[in-house]
Design a protein around this nucleic acid. Structure first.
Lengths: 231, 231
DNA sequence: CCGTAGAGGATTGTTCAACGATCCCTCAAT
DNA sequence: ATTGAGGGATCGTTGAACAATCCTCTACGG
Protein backbone atom coordinates (compact mmCIF):
# COMPACT_ATOMS: atom_id res chain seq x y z
CA UNK A 1 0.00 0.00 0.00
CA UNK A 2 2.79 2.39 0.86
CA UNK A 3 4.26 1.81 -2.59
CA UNK A 4 1.02 2.66 -4.31
CA UNK A 5 0.53 5.81 -2.29
CA UNK A 6 4.01 6.91 -3.20
CA UNK A 7 3.31 6.39 -6.88
CA UNK A 8 0.04 8.22 -6.60
CA UNK A 9 1.79 11.14 -4.99
CA UNK A 10 3.93 11.41 -8.10
CA UNK A 11 0.86 11.63 -10.31
CA UNK A 12 -0.47 14.44 -8.23
CA UNK A 13 1.70 16.86 -10.13
CA UNK A 14 -0.22 16.07 -13.29
CA UNK A 15 -3.56 16.81 -11.71
CA UNK A 16 -4.28 20.08 -10.01
CA UNK A 17 -1.67 22.44 -11.40
CA UNK A 18 -3.82 24.07 -14.05
CA UNK A 19 -4.91 27.59 -13.40
CA UNK A 20 -6.06 29.48 -16.47
CA UNK A 21 -3.16 31.88 -16.28
CA UNK A 22 -0.70 29.00 -16.24
CA UNK A 23 -2.34 27.33 -19.19
CA UNK A 24 -2.26 30.58 -21.12
CA UNK A 25 1.39 31.03 -20.28
CA UNK A 26 2.06 27.46 -21.45
CA UNK A 27 0.48 28.26 -24.79
CA UNK A 28 2.37 31.51 -25.21
CA UNK A 29 5.62 29.92 -24.09
CA UNK A 30 5.47 27.24 -26.73
CA UNK A 31 4.39 29.76 -29.37
CA UNK A 32 7.43 31.82 -28.54
CA UNK A 33 9.67 28.75 -28.48
CA UNK A 34 8.54 27.70 -31.95
CA UNK A 35 9.06 31.18 -33.33
CA UNK A 36 5.40 31.91 -33.92
CA UNK A 37 5.93 35.13 -31.96
CA UNK A 38 9.40 36.26 -33.03
CA UNK A 39 11.54 38.38 -30.69
CA UNK A 40 10.41 41.98 -30.68
CA UNK A 41 6.76 41.15 -31.27
CA UNK A 42 4.37 43.10 -29.16
CA UNK A 43 1.68 41.03 -27.51
CA UNK A 44 -1.48 43.10 -27.36
CA UNK A 45 -3.70 42.48 -24.40
CA UNK A 46 -6.86 42.99 -26.37
CA UNK A 47 -6.14 40.81 -29.37
CA UNK A 48 -4.52 37.92 -27.53
CA UNK A 49 -7.03 38.04 -24.74
CA UNK A 50 -9.82 38.04 -27.29
CA UNK A 51 -8.27 35.25 -29.36
CA UNK A 52 -7.74 33.07 -26.33
CA UNK A 53 -11.00 34.02 -24.70
CA UNK A 54 -9.60 35.08 -21.36
CA UNK A 55 -9.95 38.31 -19.48
CA UNK A 56 -7.30 40.98 -19.40
CA UNK A 57 -6.51 40.31 -15.78
CA UNK A 58 -5.85 36.65 -16.41
CA UNK A 59 -3.82 37.39 -19.50
CA UNK A 60 -1.72 39.92 -17.66
CA UNK A 61 -1.07 37.31 -15.04
CA UNK A 62 0.21 34.98 -17.73
CA UNK A 63 2.37 37.80 -19.09
CA UNK A 64 3.89 38.29 -15.68
CA UNK A 65 4.76 34.63 -15.43
CA UNK A 66 6.58 34.75 -18.73
CA UNK A 67 8.25 38.03 -17.85
CA UNK A 68 9.69 36.35 -14.78
CA UNK A 69 11.07 33.68 -17.07
CA UNK A 70 12.73 36.42 -19.09
CA UNK A 71 10.88 35.46 -22.26
CA UNK A 72 8.91 38.71 -22.31
CA UNK A 73 9.89 42.22 -21.39
CA UNK A 74 7.47 44.70 -19.97
CA UNK A 75 7.59 48.34 -20.99
CA UNK A 76 5.52 50.69 -18.94
CA UNK A 77 2.39 51.87 -20.71
CA UNK A 78 3.56 50.20 -23.89
CA UNK A 79 2.86 46.59 -23.21
CA UNK A 80 4.83 43.36 -23.31
CA UNK A 81 7.20 42.28 -26.06
CA UNK A 82 8.92 39.06 -26.89
CA UNK A 83 12.39 39.57 -25.57
CA UNK A 84 15.14 40.64 -27.93
CA UNK A 85 18.42 39.41 -26.52
CA UNK A 86 21.44 41.63 -26.72
CA UNK A 87 24.84 40.27 -27.61
CA UNK A 88 25.71 40.67 -23.94
CA UNK A 89 22.76 38.46 -23.03
CA UNK A 90 23.97 35.77 -25.39
CA UNK A 91 27.45 35.97 -23.96
CA UNK A 92 26.08 35.70 -20.44
CA UNK A 93 23.98 32.72 -21.41
CA UNK A 94 27.04 30.92 -22.68
CA UNK A 95 29.07 32.01 -19.67
CA UNK A 96 26.44 30.42 -17.45
CA UNK A 97 26.24 27.34 -19.60
CA UNK A 98 29.96 26.81 -19.54
CA UNK A 99 30.13 27.31 -15.81
CA UNK A 100 27.28 24.98 -15.00
CA UNK A 101 27.55 22.32 -17.67
CA UNK A 102 31.25 21.80 -17.20
CA UNK A 103 30.77 21.70 -13.45
CA UNK A 104 28.11 19.04 -13.88
CA UNK A 105 30.44 16.83 -15.88
CA UNK A 106 33.30 17.41 -13.49
CA UNK A 107 31.09 16.65 -10.51
CA UNK A 108 29.94 13.28 -11.81
CA UNK A 109 30.82 10.36 -9.55
CA UNK A 110 32.19 7.09 -10.74
CA UNK A 111 30.78 5.56 -13.93
CA UNK A 112 28.56 4.15 -15.21
CA UNK A 113 26.16 7.05 -15.52
CA UNK A 114 22.54 7.04 -16.60
CA UNK A 115 23.09 8.15 -20.16
CA UNK A 116 19.81 7.02 -21.73
CA UNK A 117 18.50 10.56 -21.92
CA UNK A 118 21.63 11.79 -23.63
CA UNK A 119 21.59 8.91 -26.10
CA UNK A 120 17.95 9.64 -26.84
CA UNK A 121 18.69 13.28 -27.56
CA UNK A 122 21.54 12.30 -29.86
CA UNK A 123 19.25 9.98 -31.75
CA UNK A 124 16.61 12.69 -31.94
CA UNK A 125 19.16 15.04 -33.48
CA UNK A 126 20.33 12.47 -36.00
CA UNK A 127 16.81 11.75 -37.13
CA UNK A 128 15.98 15.43 -37.53
CA UNK A 129 19.17 15.95 -39.53
CA UNK A 130 18.29 13.09 -41.86
CA UNK A 131 14.96 14.75 -42.53
CA UNK A 132 16.57 18.14 -43.06
CA UNK A 133 14.68 19.52 -40.09
CA UNK A 134 17.35 21.89 -38.82
CA UNK A 135 15.10 23.53 -36.33
CA UNK A 136 14.47 20.07 -34.94
CA UNK A 137 18.22 19.58 -34.74
CA UNK A 138 18.46 22.72 -32.67
CA UNK A 139 15.73 21.47 -30.37
CA UNK A 140 17.44 18.11 -30.01
CA UNK A 141 20.66 19.90 -29.26
CA UNK A 142 19.00 21.75 -26.43
CA UNK A 143 17.52 18.49 -25.20
CA UNK A 144 20.97 16.96 -25.18
CA UNK A 145 22.32 19.65 -22.94
CA UNK A 146 19.28 19.61 -20.74
CA UNK A 147 19.82 15.90 -20.21
CA UNK A 148 23.44 16.60 -19.50
CA UNK A 149 22.48 19.02 -16.74
CA UNK A 150 20.01 16.46 -15.41
CA UNK A 151 22.96 14.23 -14.59
CA UNK A 152 23.65 16.53 -11.65
CA UNK A 153 20.36 15.36 -10.14
CA UNK A 154 19.74 18.84 -8.77
CA UNK A 155 16.28 20.25 -9.18
CA UNK A 156 17.43 23.85 -8.78
CA UNK A 157 20.27 23.54 -11.23
CA UNK A 158 17.96 21.93 -13.76
CA UNK A 159 15.44 24.71 -13.38
CA UNK A 160 17.97 27.47 -13.87
CA UNK A 161 19.23 25.85 -17.02
CA UNK A 162 15.75 25.22 -18.33
CA UNK A 163 15.18 28.95 -18.26
CA UNK A 164 18.59 29.63 -19.78
CA UNK A 165 17.92 27.22 -22.63
CA UNK A 166 14.54 28.84 -23.25
CA UNK A 167 16.32 32.17 -23.60
CA UNK A 168 18.84 30.62 -25.91
CA UNK A 169 16.04 29.65 -28.24
CA UNK A 170 15.22 33.33 -28.59
CA UNK A 171 18.70 33.91 -29.92
CA UNK A 172 18.36 31.01 -32.34
CA UNK A 173 15.19 32.54 -33.76
CA UNK A 174 16.93 35.81 -34.44
CA UNK A 175 19.82 34.10 -36.16
CA UNK A 176 17.60 31.97 -38.33
CA UNK A 177 20.33 30.02 -40.06
CA UNK A 178 19.57 26.76 -38.34
CA UNK A 179 21.61 24.44 -40.52
CA UNK A 180 24.79 26.44 -40.35
CA UNK A 181 24.20 26.87 -36.64
CA UNK A 182 23.31 23.40 -35.49
CA UNK A 183 24.67 20.86 -37.95
CA UNK A 184 28.29 20.89 -36.81
CA UNK A 185 27.36 20.03 -33.28
CA UNK A 186 25.66 16.73 -33.84
CA UNK A 187 29.01 14.99 -34.13
CA UNK A 188 30.38 16.87 -31.15
CA UNK A 189 27.49 15.79 -28.96
CA UNK A 190 28.16 12.22 -30.02
CA UNK A 191 31.79 12.60 -29.02
CA UNK A 192 30.81 13.94 -25.62
CA UNK A 193 28.40 11.08 -25.12
CA UNK A 194 31.05 8.54 -26.08
CA UNK A 195 33.55 10.04 -23.69
CA UNK A 196 31.00 9.74 -20.92
CA UNK A 197 30.16 6.19 -21.90
CA UNK A 198 33.86 5.42 -21.65
CA UNK A 199 33.84 6.98 -18.20
CA UNK A 200 36.34 9.65 -19.25
CA UNK A 201 35.02 12.73 -17.47
CA UNK A 202 38.07 14.84 -18.18
CA UNK A 203 37.78 14.31 -21.92
CA UNK A 204 34.05 14.93 -21.83
CA UNK A 205 34.57 18.19 -19.99
CA UNK A 206 37.18 19.51 -22.38
CA UNK A 207 35.06 18.51 -25.38
CA UNK A 208 32.13 20.28 -23.81
CA UNK A 209 34.12 23.41 -23.10
CA UNK A 210 35.38 23.49 -26.65
CA UNK A 211 31.89 22.97 -27.96
CA UNK A 212 30.51 25.86 -25.92
CA UNK A 213 33.31 28.22 -26.90
CA UNK A 214 32.84 27.48 -30.58
CA UNK A 215 29.08 27.72 -30.35
CA UNK A 216 29.21 31.06 -28.60
CA UNK A 217 31.60 32.43 -31.16
CA UNK A 218 29.44 31.27 -34.02
CA UNK A 219 26.18 32.49 -32.57
CA UNK A 220 27.58 35.86 -31.59
CA UNK A 221 29.16 36.35 -34.99
CA UNK A 222 25.92 35.79 -36.85
CA UNK A 223 23.90 37.46 -34.14
CA UNK A 224 25.88 40.65 -34.22
CA UNK A 225 25.48 40.90 -37.97
CA UNK A 226 21.79 40.19 -37.69
CA UNK A 227 21.17 42.75 -34.98
CA UNK A 228 23.17 45.29 -36.94
CA UNK A 229 20.72 44.95 -39.83
CA UNK A 230 17.82 46.16 -37.77
CA UNK A 231 19.62 49.25 -36.46
CA UNK B 1 -2.48 36.50 13.27
CA UNK B 2 -4.25 39.59 14.57
CA UNK B 3 -0.98 40.88 16.07
CA UNK B 4 0.84 40.46 12.81
CA UNK B 5 -1.80 42.25 10.79
CA UNK B 6 -1.68 45.21 13.13
CA UNK B 7 2.08 45.46 12.72
CA UNK B 8 1.75 45.15 8.97
CA UNK B 9 -0.49 48.16 8.93
CA UNK B 10 2.48 50.14 10.27
CA UNK B 11 4.49 49.21 7.21
CA UNK B 12 1.87 50.89 5.14
CA UNK B 13 3.76 54.17 5.47
CA UNK B 14 6.65 52.77 3.45
CA UNK B 15 4.40 52.37 0.45
CA UNK B 16 5.34 55.57 -1.32
CA UNK B 17 7.91 54.64 -3.91
CA UNK B 18 8.28 52.31 -6.89
CA UNK B 19 5.84 49.74 -8.19
CA UNK B 20 3.32 48.87 -5.53
CA UNK B 21 3.70 45.16 -6.04
CA UNK B 22 7.46 45.35 -5.64
CA UNK B 23 7.18 47.37 -2.50
CA UNK B 24 4.72 44.90 -1.07
CA UNK B 25 7.01 42.03 -1.95
CA UNK B 26 9.91 43.87 -0.32
CA UNK B 27 7.95 44.16 2.88
CA UNK B 28 6.86 40.56 2.85
CA UNK B 29 10.32 39.35 1.91
CA UNK B 30 11.96 41.01 4.85
CA UNK B 31 9.18 39.88 7.14
CA UNK B 32 9.79 36.34 6.02
CA UNK B 33 13.56 36.69 6.26
CA UNK B 34 13.35 37.91 9.82
CA UNK B 35 11.03 35.09 10.75
CA UNK B 36 7.99 37.25 11.32
CA UNK B 37 6.06 34.92 9.05
CA UNK B 38 7.48 31.52 9.94
CA UNK B 39 7.62 28.75 7.32
CA UNK B 40 4.24 27.16 6.85
CA UNK B 41 2.27 30.33 7.53
CA UNK B 42 -0.55 30.96 5.14
CA UNK B 43 -0.73 34.47 3.76
CA UNK B 44 -4.36 35.37 3.22
CA UNK B 45 -5.14 37.70 0.35
CA UNK B 46 -7.90 39.39 2.22
CA UNK B 47 -6.23 40.11 5.52
CA UNK B 48 -2.82 41.08 4.18
CA UNK B 49 -4.31 43.07 1.35
CA UNK B 50 -6.49 44.84 3.85
CA UNK B 51 -3.68 45.49 6.30
CA UNK B 52 -1.42 46.91 3.61
CA UNK B 53 -4.22 48.74 1.87
CA UNK B 54 -3.56 47.30 -1.59
CA UNK B 55 -5.91 45.57 -3.96
CA UNK B 56 -5.98 41.82 -4.35
CA UNK B 57 -4.52 42.05 -7.83
CA UNK B 58 -1.50 43.97 -6.62
CA UNK B 59 -1.02 41.63 -3.70
CA UNK B 60 -1.22 38.62 -5.96
CA UNK B 61 1.50 40.11 -8.13
CA UNK B 62 3.65 40.50 -5.03
CA UNK B 63 2.92 36.90 -4.11
CA UNK B 64 3.94 35.86 -7.58
CA UNK B 65 7.28 37.61 -7.26
CA UNK B 66 8.01 35.85 -4.00
CA UNK B 67 6.74 32.54 -5.33
CA UNK B 68 9.19 32.88 -8.17
CA UNK B 69 11.92 33.39 -5.59
CA UNK B 70 10.73 30.17 -4.00
CA UNK B 71 10.01 31.93 -0.71
CA UNK B 72 6.32 31.19 -1.05
CA UNK B 73 4.51 28.21 -2.45
CA UNK B 74 1.23 28.54 -4.22
CA UNK B 75 -1.47 25.92 -3.89
CA UNK B 76 -4.40 26.17 -6.22
CA UNK B 77 -7.53 27.41 -4.50
CA UNK B 78 -5.77 27.29 -1.15
CA UNK B 79 -3.55 30.32 -1.27
CA UNK B 80 0.13 30.98 -0.70
CA UNK B 81 2.22 29.71 2.18
CA UNK B 82 5.65 30.52 3.45
CA UNK B 83 7.79 27.73 2.10
CA UNK B 84 8.73 24.87 4.35
CA UNK B 85 11.98 23.41 3.12
CA UNK B 86 12.38 19.68 3.25
CA UNK B 87 15.69 18.06 4.07
CA UNK B 88 15.89 17.19 0.38
CA UNK B 89 15.54 20.88 -0.45
CA UNK B 90 18.41 21.74 1.84
CA UNK B 91 20.53 19.04 0.29
CA UNK B 92 19.69 20.30 -3.19
CA UNK B 93 20.53 23.84 -2.18
CA UNK B 94 23.97 22.73 -1.06
CA UNK B 95 24.38 20.56 -4.14
CA UNK B 96 23.72 23.61 -6.27
CA UNK B 97 25.97 25.79 -4.16
CA UNK B 98 28.82 23.35 -4.40
CA UNK B 99 28.39 22.97 -8.13
CA UNK B 100 28.22 26.67 -8.87
CA UNK B 101 30.50 28.19 -6.25
CA UNK B 102 33.32 25.76 -6.89
CA UNK B 103 32.91 26.27 -10.61
CA UNK B 104 33.13 30.02 -10.13
CA UNK B 105 36.42 29.71 -8.25
CA UNK B 106 37.77 27.24 -10.76
CA UNK B 107 36.75 29.44 -13.64
CA UNK B 108 38.56 32.51 -12.39
CA UNK B 109 41.22 33.81 -14.71
CA UNK B 110 44.62 34.96 -13.63
CA UNK B 111 44.95 36.97 -10.41
CA UNK B 112 44.57 39.54 -9.08
CA UNK B 113 40.83 39.39 -8.64
CA UNK B 114 38.46 42.07 -7.41
CA UNK B 115 38.17 40.87 -3.86
CA UNK B 116 36.89 44.04 -2.19
CA UNK B 117 33.40 42.68 -1.85
CA UNK B 118 34.62 39.48 -0.25
CA UNK B 119 36.84 41.37 2.17
CA UNK B 120 33.93 43.60 3.08
CA UNK B 121 31.71 40.62 3.84
CA UNK B 122 34.42 39.09 6.01
CA UNK B 123 34.71 42.33 7.95
CA UNK B 124 30.93 42.48 8.28
CA UNK B 125 30.95 38.98 9.75
CA UNK B 126 33.74 39.77 12.19
CA UNK B 127 31.99 42.87 13.43
CA UNK B 128 28.71 41.01 13.92
CA UNK B 129 30.53 38.26 15.79
CA UNK B 130 32.18 40.78 18.12
CA UNK B 131 28.74 42.12 18.94
CA UNK B 132 27.33 38.65 19.47
CA UNK B 133 24.89 39.22 16.60
CA UNK B 134 24.83 35.69 15.29
CA UNK B 135 21.99 36.30 12.92
CA UNK B 136 24.12 39.09 11.48
CA UNK B 137 26.98 36.63 11.13
CA UNK B 138 24.71 34.39 9.10
CA UNK B 139 23.75 37.30 6.89
CA UNK B 140 27.38 38.29 6.42
CA UNK B 141 28.17 34.70 5.57
CA UNK B 142 25.56 34.75 2.85
CA UNK B 143 26.95 38.06 1.61
CA UNK B 144 30.40 36.51 1.42
CA UNK B 145 29.20 33.77 -0.82
CA UNK B 146 27.11 36.10 -2.91
CA UNK B 147 30.21 38.18 -3.52
CA UNK B 148 32.07 35.02 -4.36
CA UNK B 149 29.52 34.19 -7.04
CA UNK B 150 29.71 37.75 -8.31
CA UNK B 151 33.31 37.05 -9.31
CA UNK B 152 31.92 35.05 -12.22
CA UNK B 153 30.53 38.33 -13.62
CA UNK B 154 27.47 36.53 -14.90
CA UNK B 155 24.13 38.15 -14.31
CA UNK B 156 22.21 34.92 -14.68
CA UNK B 157 24.43 32.94 -12.39
CA UNK B 158 24.21 35.67 -9.77
CA UNK B 159 20.45 35.68 -9.98
CA UNK B 160 20.14 31.95 -9.55
CA UNK B 161 22.32 32.03 -6.49
CA UNK B 162 20.52 35.02 -5.04
CA UNK B 163 17.38 32.94 -4.99
CA UNK B 164 19.22 29.93 -3.60
CA UNK B 165 20.66 32.00 -0.78
CA UNK B 166 17.24 33.41 0.02
CA UNK B 167 15.97 29.86 0.35
CA UNK B 168 18.86 28.99 2.57
CA UNK B 169 17.79 31.68 4.95
CA UNK B 170 14.51 29.85 5.38
CA UNK B 171 16.44 26.82 6.55
CA UNK B 172 18.55 28.90 8.91
CA UNK B 173 15.44 30.30 10.45
CA UNK B 174 13.97 26.89 11.12
CA UNK B 175 17.20 25.73 12.69
CA UNK B 176 17.44 28.76 14.92
CA UNK B 177 20.78 28.01 16.51
CA UNK B 178 22.66 30.79 14.79
CA UNK B 179 25.84 30.78 16.85
CA UNK B 180 26.45 27.07 16.60
CA UNK B 181 25.60 27.29 12.92
CA UNK B 182 27.57 30.28 11.75
CA UNK B 183 30.46 30.92 14.11
CA UNK B 184 32.81 28.22 12.84
CA UNK B 185 32.69 29.55 9.33
CA UNK B 186 34.03 33.02 9.89
CA UNK B 187 37.55 31.68 10.01
CA UNK B 188 36.96 29.45 7.02
CA UNK B 189 35.75 32.35 4.92
CA UNK B 190 38.91 34.22 5.88
CA UNK B 191 40.98 31.26 4.76
CA UNK B 192 39.20 31.16 1.42
CA UNK B 193 39.70 34.87 0.95
CA UNK B 194 43.41 34.57 1.77
CA UNK B 195 43.84 31.74 -0.69
CA UNK B 196 42.26 33.89 -3.37
CA UNK B 197 44.40 36.87 -2.43
CA UNK B 198 47.42 34.63 -2.82
CA UNK B 199 46.11 33.65 -6.25
CA UNK B 200 45.81 29.99 -5.26
CA UNK B 201 42.56 28.97 -6.92
CA UNK B 202 43.05 25.29 -6.29
CA UNK B 203 43.40 25.77 -2.56
CA UNK B 204 40.46 28.15 -2.47
CA UNK B 205 38.31 25.63 -4.28
CA UNK B 206 39.17 22.76 -1.97
CA UNK B 207 38.63 24.96 1.10
CA UNK B 208 35.29 26.00 -0.32
CA UNK B 209 34.26 22.44 -1.06
CA UNK B 210 35.18 21.38 2.44
CA UNK B 211 33.28 24.30 3.87
CA UNK B 212 30.15 23.44 1.94
CA UNK B 213 30.29 19.77 2.86
CA UNK B 214 30.66 20.55 6.54
CA UNK B 215 27.99 23.20 6.46
CA UNK B 216 25.52 20.90 4.75
CA UNK B 217 26.17 18.15 7.25
CA UNK B 218 25.70 20.47 10.18
CA UNK B 219 22.56 22.14 8.85
CA UNK B 220 20.96 18.86 7.86
CA UNK B 221 21.73 17.29 11.21
CA UNK B 222 20.06 20.05 13.17
CA UNK B 223 17.38 20.52 10.57
CA UNK B 224 16.32 16.91 10.60
CA UNK B 225 16.00 16.96 14.36
CA UNK B 226 14.07 20.17 14.20
CA UNK B 227 11.65 18.98 11.57
CA UNK B 228 11.17 15.75 13.49
CA UNK B 229 9.86 17.73 16.44
CA UNK B 230 6.96 19.11 14.46
CA UNK B 231 5.89 15.74 13.08
C1' DC C 1 9.46 71.63 -47.74
C1' DC C 2 10.43 70.78 -42.97
C1' DG C 3 9.84 70.67 -38.15
C1' DT C 4 6.87 71.24 -34.23
C1' DA C 5 2.80 71.57 -31.29
C1' DG C 6 -1.44 69.75 -30.23
C1' DA C 7 -5.79 67.07 -30.55
C1' DG C 8 -7.77 62.64 -30.71
C1' DG C 9 -7.79 57.73 -30.52
C1' DA C 10 -5.90 53.59 -28.89
C1' DT C 11 -3.67 50.97 -25.39
C1' DT C 12 -2.18 50.09 -20.93
C1' DG C 13 -2.40 50.70 -15.46
C1' DT C 14 -5.16 50.08 -11.64
C1' DT C 15 -8.88 49.18 -8.90
C1' DC C 16 -13.32 47.27 -7.73
C1' DA C 17 -17.37 44.30 -7.40
C1' DA C 18 -19.43 40.12 -8.48
C1' DC C 19 -20.01 35.19 -9.26
C1' DG C 20 -18.60 30.52 -9.64
C1' DA C 21 -15.35 26.96 -8.06
C1' DT C 22 -12.81 24.76 -4.64
C1' DC C 23 -11.35 23.64 -0.19
C1' DC C 24 -11.94 22.83 4.79
C1' DC C 25 -14.56 21.97 8.79
C1' DT C 26 -18.50 20.13 11.08
C1' DC C 27 -21.91 16.93 11.89
C1' DA C 28 -24.97 13.30 11.17
C1' DA C 29 -25.60 8.59 9.40
C1' DT C 30 -24.09 3.99 8.37
C1' DA D 1 -14.12 4.47 12.04
C1' DT D 2 -15.55 5.80 7.54
C1' DT D 3 -18.55 8.08 4.41
C1' DG D 4 -21.29 11.82 2.66
C1' DA D 5 -23.78 16.30 2.87
C1' DG D 6 -23.97 21.05 4.08
C1' DG D 7 -22.10 25.64 5.18
C1' DG D 8 -18.61 29.08 5.45
C1' DA D 9 -14.42 30.91 3.87
C1' DT D 10 -11.17 31.75 0.35
C1' DC D 11 -9.46 31.66 -4.13
C1' DG D 12 -9.98 32.13 -9.49
C1' DT D 13 -11.73 34.67 -13.11
C1' DT D 14 -14.32 37.91 -15.33
C1' DG D 15 -16.10 42.39 -16.74
C1' DA D 16 -16.33 47.10 -16.23
C1' DA D 17 -14.83 51.56 -15.17
C1' DC D 18 -11.67 55.36 -15.13
C1' DA D 19 -7.02 57.47 -15.17
C1' DA D 20 -2.55 57.70 -17.30
C1' DT D 21 0.29 57.21 -21.09
C1' DC D 22 1.66 56.56 -25.75
C1' DC D 23 1.05 56.87 -30.77
C1' DT D 24 -0.66 58.94 -34.96
C1' DC D 25 -2.34 62.33 -37.68
C1' DT D 26 -3.25 67.00 -38.56
C1' DA D 27 -2.49 71.84 -38.70
C1' DC D 28 0.35 75.55 -38.10
C1' DG D 29 4.50 78.47 -38.59
C1' DG D 30 9.13 79.05 -40.29
Amino acid sequence: MAEQLKDLADDRALLGRTSTAERVSDILRSRIAEGYFPPGTRLSEDSIGGALGVSRNTLREAFRLLTHERLLVHELNRGVFVRVLTVEDVEDIYRTRRLVECAVVRGLGEPPYGLDGLAGAVEEGRRAAREGDWKGVGTANIHFHRELVALAASERTAELMRSVFAELRLAFHVVDEPQRLHEPYIARNVAILEALQAGDRGKAESLLAGYLDDSLERVVEVYRRRVGEDG
